[in-house]
Design a protein around this nucleic acid. Sequence first.
DNA 1: GGGACGCTTCGACGGGGGCCGAAGGATCGC
DNA 2: GCGATCCTTCGGCCCCCGTCGAAGCGTCCC
Lengths: 240, 240
Amino acid sequence: MNNHDTHVGGPDLAALAVLLADGTRADFCLALLDGRAWTATELARHAGVAASTATGHLNLLVSGGLLTQERQGRHRYVRLADPDTAELIEKIASMAPRRADPPRSLPAANRSRALARARTCYDHLAGALGVAITEAMTDRGLLDWEQGLTLTSDGTAWLAELGIALPPAARRPPVRSCLDWTERRPHLAGAVGAALCRHAFDAGWITRIGTNRAVALTDAGERALKDRLGLAVQPQTPVS
Amino acid sequence: MNNHDTHVGGPDLAALAVLLADGTRADFCLALLDGRAWTATELARHAGVAASTATGHLNLLVSGGLLTQERQGRHRYVRLADPDTAELIEKIASMAPRRADPPRSLPAANRSRALARARTCYDHLAGALGVAITEAMTDRGLLDWEQGLTLTSDGTAWLAELGIALPPAARRPPVRSCLDWTERRPHLAGAVGAALCRHAFDAGWITRIGTNRAVALTDAGERALKDRLGLAVQPQTPVS
DNA sequence: GGGACGCTTCGACGGGGGCCGAAGGATCGC
DNA sequence: GCGATCCTTCGGCCCCCGTCGAAGCGTCCC
């Protein structure tokens, strides 16, 4: 065993890291980054392990505080515990090495391309679309990167036009930058990023593709982005 | 083994987390958060493991990109690879559960109290002193927490008075908040936090206690904080 | 009620990884 | 040169942990 000669009450780094140090549990967390609740079976199939194995992992993650669960009948729904946890996973993911995975199957490759185009990252938009929106907002002076990332007064007004009120100052920063792992450029996260993403769903700008994190830009979304941000992007037909 | 059904080239979360998922390696990283280079033997003694064990861990951490090393004669110096890595470790540490360690020895407890008063956290100031400075800067309008943490124009001027120039906008944010694990309140990090800490050492406001992360406020430092920030704190005699 | 489904518990298996001490190479100081 | 110091390699030990399938329990639906 280990002889931990650390300060009294110091943070137990390893206890938290162990939870993410297993490939299957990491897969779970990455999947849950879409911000939705998954059932145990869905996660098991996603990661390619037996249901009993998934149960064990979920017990660890829940008791470790990374996940919260909700029982509904015979289903066990789990989701990331809070935005802080999502940020933690995003941060680690952004610094982790890339997986050298052989392309598996055609549908997997397709889904992967869809993911690269547009997806949710916990509760905000990512992928090429997320990055494009973030850069368009920057070009229009809605975001300021001079000194960390901040929302300008123009940005606040722009959000208000959309009917998005700036959430009251909470522990969570209103705007935050999140490094995109396909684009390698930052996209908008934080409370505003989440609100914007929610609005995009509500207003029908984007729709989910299948049950995963990938989303498709609708015609309405394409028009809205052109009108609101002068952003020209191709809508995607939400097949596959 | 594991059947990872993830997207091609996705982040290998587990590969990074594994590095921090061992108590000894976590101890190393926490110790290296003081921003200085440690020798392999120092770290081994700090964590209470054999030198050969430390060698193995350091090999993993270095090849994993978390640490960089430098050989000088028979010494192997290691330090955290970059500020990004330090932020990663800070982030995990801030969310990790506290260690329920029985207080070991009197000197350890003393050092622990000294650590709680004032210490370095990677390259900036932490502990009660770090938090007090951060809050005094906020009170004086040098920092703004309204919308994330930002440096005000008054803050820029105040730094200039000290001879600290705002570093050019780089990937690293100028100001960042870092949750203090003893105070449970945020202190100033980021490039400005680092510059301020460096200035505090250079100007003789603070000195190291022993070889660890703890620092002591000098008489000169006490006067400077009173003059510059109207902050009343007790200097500490750097014994122990 | 009966069957399908989702989840959990249990036992068994296998492998990986952390630990140490001994021995040896490299470097420094005298 | 000679001992002391720092580090590394190697072998051996042992425990932990991830995996599965079988069996069982609860829930849902027909």
